[in-house]
């Protein structure tokens, strides 16, 4: 069992947790992810490593309540435990292995969308620790969904916050913000890292291609085992089939087939939806226990 040592709400739907997992903490590097199972009957879900502390033996995860499992996980408290917590999985970000003098020559722009800001953070922090200054754009639908702003400001040189509805920071999408930086503010970048919802990565990568910035994206596909034994996470990159869990999760952002990836994400929508309904409404939506039946009994 893997104990929750700290829990913090970063917004009304976004949860941060420090999990006791010494082996995972010791081996983790930026860009990698873990697989979590909440309880004996739970499903295996992938979550990106957001931070790690070798001394404390903890790994930090951040998740948004988007479905049945994450909603119930958000109900866990400090002291509760996850049934399984395994990793780190996938390859670390490329810059971890590149010669540092090469990395220092590059001007990085990190773009995090929504909860995708969480996996951006360990990368920015790692670069800071290795004396590389980077810029960060973090975007969300509204102010409530902006996370880790203070942490990011400590780790990055310049941080640009934007919201779709203008409730905080720059009013517009992350793509509007990047366009503004490059076209109006005279900024130039030679490497972009984009992490967020698939649709946001698709359009942000389209923009960086136009701007001529080499780009890496981190793919959040459906996964089961996360060790390369099933291929549930397969994606088409540059015409070849890749397994996101072992070949990725980071890929050339200009070579990914985003439409295909989004189509696969939709695969379990109905089952997930049904399950979510079961959690919020119990069995009331089933015909045998529906309002008609009970109403008749009460009447």
């Amino acid at each position: 069992m893997y104990k929750i040592l700290k829990k913090k709400m970063l917004g009304s739907q976004i949860v941060l947790m420090d999990i006791e997992a010494p082996r995972v903490a010791k081996a983790s590097l930026p860009g990698q992810f873990v697989i979590v199972i909440m309880d004996e009957k739970g499903e295996r879900i992938p979550l990106t490593v957001c931070d790690y502390d070798i001394k404390k033996g903890t790994v930090t995860i951040v998740f948004q309540t988007v479905g049945d499992t994450t909603r119930r996980m958000a109900g866990f408290r400090e002291g509760d435990s996850f049934f399984a917590f395994t990793g780190p999985l996938g390859h670390p970000s490329d810059f971890v292995k590149e010669p540092l003098e090469e990395v220092k020559k590059k001007k990085f722009i990190f773009i995090g969308g929504g909860v995708g800001v969480a996996p951006v953070y360990p990368q920015v922090k790692w670069l800071k620790e290795h004396e590389v200054d980077v810029d960060v754009i973090m975007g969300a639908r509204n102010k409530d969904l902006i996370i880790l702003e203070d942490e990011m400001k400590k780790a990055a040189k310049d941080v640009y916050v934007c919201t779709d509805d203008g409730s905080y920071g720059f009013h517009g999408l992350v793509t509007d913000c990047l366009t503004d930086l490059v076209k109006n503010k005279g900024k130039s970048y030679d490497h972009a890292v984009i992490i967020g919802p698939m649709i946001m990565m698709k359009f942000a990568a389209k923009l960086t291609k136009e701007l001529g910035i080499p780009t890496v994206v981190s793919l959040n596909t459906i996964m089961v085992d996360g060790t390369g034994m099933c291929g549930a996470c397969r994606v088409n990159v540059g015409g070849a089939v890749k397994f996101a869990c072992v070949d990725g999760p980071e890929f050339d952002g200009h070579a990914v087939d985003y439409d295909g990836a989004m189509r696969r994400m939709a695969m379990y929508k109905t089952e997930e939806g049904r399950k979510a309904l079961r959690t919020t409404e119990g069995t009331t939506h089933k015909p045998e226990k529906g309002c008609g039946v009970q109403g008749a009994q009460i009447g």
Partner: peptide
């Protein structure tokens, strides 16, 4: 369990 040799250790 949950130890992936090659990744975790």
């Amino acid at each position: 369990t949950n130890v992936i040799v090659g990744r975790t250790v």
